[in-house]
Design a protein around this nucleic acid. Structure first.
Lengths: 233, 233
DNA sequence: CGAGCCCTTGATGCATTTCAACGAATGTGG
DNA sequence: CCACATTCGTTGAAATGCATCAAGGGCTCG
């Protein structure tokens, strides 16, 4: 009965992105059954593209495990990273006809793949789900506004501090230690700085005793309050 | 019958933001009637706040005339401008319970004020309108992503060039000349640079023959293609 | 005509990028 | 199992872009 187990995983992921309170909504149970039936799981290796910019945006994806990066490349070879996504996040929700960025795995990953049209059809049956879906879109919009705010305001090192606080929140699972799945270059492209400046930022925060670093990717926040104070001016 | 004239203006603005094709949608006519009946027009002076960050986001606004700026202030007195909005744009659509930024007029302005709950109620009656409304939200999201992209990639002068191209598109009405309703400081806070850097950017573009400037605010693009090439690396 | 505001311009210092070299970790084939 | 190559991160030095400080100029409005 491995098929059923798959469907359980899909339902768990769906409810994690829709919010736990969603399971008590009218028609939510039916909705989960129907969507889980038609969604599919995809296994991906490291550094694989889930979709590319300007591809037809026919699908929405939800990572079950692993980490994903949203990026856009320029003509001249530079790159902007828009977001890092982990388990329970959602990709492609805000796209119209074509994706406006590429999605690339940072690790091996399993993602749920759902047809957009399927979701639109389901909205007609379950208006409460449609409402929740668009709340998620609006939430993403406020997250991007926050990111835009940070990009405009902060110095490079402060932006890095802010990034680490965000990663602690999303990857720390209640602890001060977490593993970064992305490279220094990825971080630099996310925060709008050079690789070297990102690296120097890590070194400075370490020297000041705000963080400690093991094997480049394992980070511990040694003084959460001080790091927060540093990030916020 | 000045009231009826007001309602015509409201309907015109609604259709301009919902897209002209929307008037041919099922139920659109009824929708316009109903919304225009319950919406109200507000007259505002220059430098007035339409709403402030953290106010209850009970209303959505659509400028009929004038220009509006979305901004967020920091504890330390600096400021990030998120967007400049003109006739037919919409404000507050993506907010959940509280606004995540303030909206302030740059000029005298007339805006249509619509209750959010009213819109939600109307969605139940006219699903096609709900669909279109959420398309607008998604479109706004892609615009902010573009802005984030620019903030990360470009040098200060290139960001300014990009800004001017955007303003030409939105304010030029097909010509190469347009009037900027915002100050150098507003532009600087939008593009994440100092007032002086913004000013130097204008001077440089003028010196290079890409633009000409009358009275500080009246801009003409003298060489659109060259400006575009400059903006895009 | 004068006051006040905004914009421009110059000079200086600092933050960040760029160029370059080195070091650590990982993987490969002999 | 050990050279070797490769990739990625760190660090230093030089150059550059931008912010800051400061002064002056042009509009606008009373």
């Amino acid at each position: 009965m491995s098929l059923d187990i798959d469907k359980v995983a899909i339902k768990t992921s769906l409810s994690s992105f829709l919010g736990s309170n969603c399971t008590e909504m009218d028609g939510a149970t039916d909705f989960f059954e129907e969507l889980a039936e038609k969604a599919e799981e995809v296994n991906l290796g490291i550094n694989e593209y889930i979709f590319r910019e300007k591809d037809d945006s026919d699908y929405v994806y939800i990572p079950v495990s692993g980490a994903v990066m949203l990026e856009r490349a320029t003509l001249t070879g530079s790159r902007q990273v828009f977001a890092f996504l982990f388990t329970g996040n959602i990709l492609g929700i805000s796209e119209h006809k074509n994706y406006s960025f590429s999605a690339k795995t940072l690790t091996n990953a399993v993602v749920i793949k759902i047809n957009q049209q399927l979701i639109l059809d389901i909205f007609d049956k379950y208006p409460a789900i449609a409402q929740r879906y668009h709340e998620v879109t609006r939430h993403i919009l406020t997250l991007i506004l926050d990111q835009l705010f940070i990009m405009g305001q902060k110095t490079a090192h402060q932006r890095l501090a802010h990034f680490l606080l965000d990663m602690k929140y999303r990857l720390g699972h209640g602890t001060q230690t977490f593993h970064l799945p992305m490279s220094r270059q990825d971080i630099a492209d996310y925060l709008g700085m050079s690789l070297e400046t990102a690296s120097r930022g890590f070194s400075k925060l370490k020297k000041d005793g705000l963080i400690s670093i093991e094997n480049n990717y394992q980070i511990t926040l040694e003084n959460y309050d001080a790091l927060k104070a540093y990030a916020e001016d």
